[in-house]
Amino acid sequence: MATIELAGISLDLWEGGTGRPLLFLHGAGGFRADHPFLGLLGEHRRITAPSHPGFGASSLPDWIDRPEDIAHVYLNLLDRLGPEPIDLIACSLGGWIGAELTSMVPEKFGKLIFVAPVGVKLGSRDTLDIPDIFALPAATIEKLLYHQPERFRADPSKLTDQELTIMLRNRETTALLTWEPYMHNPKLRHRLRRVTNPALFLRGEHDGLIAADYMDGYAKLLPNARTMTLPDAGHVPQVEQPEAFVKAAIAFLNGEA
């Protein structure tokens, strides 16, 4: 993990793997370099993965309070990565940032994969599109996140202070970014029509946060997007089903699927 200065922010940046370049935008849980899917993905792609401002050890300037702000920061990152269009995998909250970013500069991107993204409001004003994760018990949240929650339960007593600090910072920054309007930018859906890149919207079959209807509706906002569901996975299929996830992602990115 390297630290770079970007737009006045001290940013954690992980790079690994070989192949054509790919930008990976993590979700609300933060970036973990030890997730097996990264190694599998790195066999096919050169991955650049920032920890978003306020996540990991990346600093959080006081002007940032929405995912759109982070997309503006990442315009600087794209400049730094060079003129060649880059493929994108963006998960959950990172999917929102990715949607904002691609709506700003679609020409800077090749193919796009959105994994269980949040960021738009599609349903009625009387019903939340995404359950209120800040008003639910932890035992409920883990069931919404995972097909097999018992495999991913963290025991705070086994984590270092630094790991706990990162966990809490990630949670704080998620609250800051997503609080209101909850998990969406009302303007984003109207900005996505210019994102004509080939796009894949992917979710785990048991995702309790992103409903199938929500993802289908989100995908329809992009002119050239399709959807896919991975079995035996929840909200983070890349973690729960790394092999199947990477296989599907590479098939799409390489144009085989």
């Binding site: 008003a135 932890a138 007593s157 809490l168 949670r171 609250a175």
Partner: peptide
């Protein structure tokens, strides 16, 4: 989930509470 919303106490205090 109502008594400890994210960000209400500083991170350092939150770590101590997890301990």
């Amino acid at each position: 989930h109502f008594a400890s919303p994210p960000g209400y106490v500083p991170v350092e205090a939150g770590v101590k509470m997890l301990r």
